[in-house]
């Protein structure tokens, strides 16, 4: 589904990704873990070509998206839904308009049909009553849920989650984790989740991958991770209490 090979990326002489290789399996939840600031978000943004690599290939559905022009990229991006770290809702629009945004842009549905779909998606995340509210009136967790509703508005084949549980209280975290799994189950989409929260990672992941020093140091099922002897992985799993509060 998504394959990254030999990705290199550096910002102002600082190497962030170094000869990175990763394959994301279709119709599964892959969680990429790693310390804060190790380049997880950069890696995720490579998958949807928000950031272009200095070298290497990003292959989505057999197509190298690093060589695509704006027009081709727009076609590929329609396969994606993305939930940003702070949800990135448009402040100038109501919740309903935010979720309706991709529908208005990329379908020719009538307003009535769009409203129906938006209502459907909001129901899925349990926020139908916020339809007419502005994003500034919502709490962090609610914003993330709206962001999720917007990400899945076009029924994408691939959904990317950038730190979905960061900055949330434990109950909300649990709710979001549940939502990710429920969504995956319903849509059978390929999900990539970036997280430094080892608890949620183990809970939702079908596959795990560990990013450290610009490379994937370990990948496998949660069970394989539990049994891993790799010191970086072991430290991360054990030391989660310290790293958790750093973000």
């Amino acid at each position: 589904m998504i394959r990254l090979s030999n990705i290199c990326k550096s910002f102002n002489d600082q190497v962030v990704l170094d000869q990175l290789n990763l394959t994301v399996e279709p119709e599964k939840i892959t969680v990429i873990i790693g310390q804060s600031g190790c380049g997880k978000s950069v890696l995720l943004k490579h998958m949807i070509a928000l950031i272009r690599p200095d070298s290497g290939q990003v292959i989505v559905d057999g197509e190298d998206i690093t060589s695509l022009d704006e027009k081709g990229l727009n076609q590929t991006r329609k396969k994606f839904g993305m939930l940003f770290q702070d949800a990135a809702l448009f402040d100038s629009m109501t919740v309903g308009d935010n979720v309706a945004f991709p529908l208005r842009e990329h379908t020719r549905l009538s307003e009535k049909d769009i409203e129906e779909v938006v209502f459907e998606k909001l129901k899925l995340v349990g926020l139908t009553e916020s339809f007419h509210k502005m994003p500034s009136e919502l709490s962090g967790g609610m914003r993330k849920r709206v962001g999720l509703a917007r990400a899945i508005a076009l029924d994408p084949k691939i959904i990317l989650f950038d730190e979905p549980t960061t900055g949330l209280d434990p109950i909300m975290k649990d709710a979001i984790d549940g939502l990710i799994m429920k969504t995956q189950e319903l849509t059978q989409a390929t999900c990539v989740v970036i997280s430094h929260d080892i608890d949620s990672a183990f809970k939702i992941a079908n596959k795990l991958a560990m990013l450290s020093d610009g490379r994937i140091v370990e990948s496998g099922t949660p069970e394989e991770f539990q049994a891993s002897k790799n010191p970086v992985v072991v430290n991360f799993i054990k030391g989660h209490a310290e790293t958790n509060n750093q973000n």
């Binding site: 991006r77 329609k78 940003f84 990135a88 842009e105």
Partner: peptide, 15 residues
């Protein structure tokens, strides 16, 4: 919009 990733979100939604 730039610092809150709303511009990235637009790109991500092919706009």
């Amino acid at each position: 919009m730039r610092v809150t990733e709303q511009i990235d979100a637009l790109y991500a939604m092919s706009v």
